[in-house]
Design a protein around this nucleic acid. Sequence first.
DNA 1: CAAAGATTTCAGAGATCTGTGAATACTCTG
DNA 2: CAGAGTATTCACAGATCTCTGAAATCTTTG
Lengths: 165, 165
Amino acid sequence: MGDDKRLRDAAEKLALILAQGGMQKTTARVMTCLLFSQQETLTAADLCAELQISSGAVSGAVKQLTPSGLLERVPAPGSRRDHYRFPDGAWATLMSQQNQLLATMGEVADQGLAAAGDPSTPAGQRMAEMRDFYSFMLRELPPLIERWRTDFTAKQAKQETHQAD
Amino acid sequence: MGDDKRLRDAAEKLALILAQGGMQKTTARVMTCLLFSQQETLTAADLCAELQISSGAVSGAVKQLTPSGLLERVPAPGSRRDHYRFPDGAWATLMSQQNQLLATMGEVADQGLAAAGDPSTPAGQRMAEMRDFYSFMLRELPPLIERWRTDFTAKQAKQETHQAD
DNA sequence: CAAAGATTTCAGAGATCTGTGAATACTCTG
DNA sequence: CAGAGTATTCACAGATCTCTGAAATCTTTG
């Protein structure tokens, strides 16, 4: 099926984009491989074969992806191998983790503001703007993501009911 | 003044955070040096001295930062040297540039959806969710940033009026 | 509880990236 | 338009990172 090749190409293309954005190249490839696979789950051996990488590399990528919620182990009854998959809602999870960064940026700005002493100094003004921006984002972004989550699950539920007709 | 040391520490700390997030280490240091400086602007020579790096390194960092809107050249009357500064509204600019990425992610999802053929296949479902998420974000984020911009400039205007009293 | 199957760890080779320092190219000024 | 003062480019050395391949560890099963 030619579609598989198109999928694999799309996977590698996205991996490249993510790699340019700072993600480890192999880590990105593992992630997109799971994302674009027509299988529900893949084993480590599958990933080795598909991406032509060693088992050690897969292990490393799994280790990086799992805590970020971009990869999850799936219980595989009747198989001794671990099965991995790209979790539902992973993109929202990923975006949510930006919140941590937003909070950190806000804290740094606070410390900077304290260190600058006077808020009317050049550094003080920059810090004030920085703090204002990041506290704003930290206030607004989480509800936004939450809204998508509820909207999307509602949308899915409706679709399933429709299929059940 | 001890405050300067605290500012410099905060600068280096933030540079480290940004470096972990994928930004070039020297690029991050140049940026935070401008951000936390009590000067309005710094020259390349200032940056060399402050950060103990070569002029070539500064040039490279400037080249990376400028297109992202995290650094701007400032006309310096009476000085032959270029003066650099951290622009007002840079954080909002930075966040806005995420929009480009959001759009790209959406496009990749579209292509993936087309390649997957049937949206009910595993890959098709993942693509559908991905597309839904990123188109949502692309729709919601820009107005949010715009709102901060207007709020913040209003806030500043009020403050200035207050000072003028 | 032994043995097979699978994953993780780790040292080291190889590739990649980055900053230096010098040479080159600009750009003002007198 | 010559010359001094800056900024940029570039080749290379040094540091960093990443994957491989093999050994070690863990886990399941007969």
